[in-house]
Design a protein around this nucleic acid. Sequence first.
DNA 1: GGTACGATTGTCT
DNA 2: GACAATCGTACCT
Length: 198
Amino acid sequence: MLSRPALEVAPALLGGLLTTRRADGRVTVRITEVEAYEGERDPGSHAYRGQTARNAVMFGRAGHLYVYRHLGLHHCVNLVCGPVGTASAVLLRAGEVVRGAEVALARRTAAGACRSSVDLARGPARLAVALGLDRTENGADVVARGGGVSLVLPSTPASDLATGPRVGVSGLGGEVTRFPWRFWIAGDPTVSAYRRAP
DNA sequence: GGTACGATTGTCT
DNA sequence: GACAATCGTACCT
């Protein structure tokens, strides 16, 4: 399943449940917004210029996490997909905390402001904080049983899918922003409002 | 060895 | 609505 191209995996992840087990508690998030990144042929991807020490995880097995630091402040979480050697990945942009809300709230409060429960995991960096993920989780396997992170895919694909241009990517004179490689669950309040698609 | 820049967020106006 | 924050990585000298 996860070894398929990012463009096929991304919509299938919507509605899926991602659970992390930490010393301070367990948090489960229902994925509501994702973006596909097609590796070396995608100017918006970190892997566009080939394999490096930072993005090596993306070239590896599907089902591993690629966690990177952005602007020295935030963390963003990707799920690696596609066959080995292909740097496909799906960026997890937003979700709804369905279990462990108190734990997530404590983490979010420690990291900064949080206005409501809907904000707990709305936005890529917020999602990472709520799940307690940081760069030490880079390369973690979400498929292996007994790991600290696990993913449960929805038995049936989510309905009411919406697609639109990706957020915050540039290159090829804005060409890449035209691809509708962003997927979210239509009408879900936990989808990030940041530059919402028209 | 130095520098430019980024898959964002929170805060201020 | 605009902007500063902040640091690892990549790319250049």
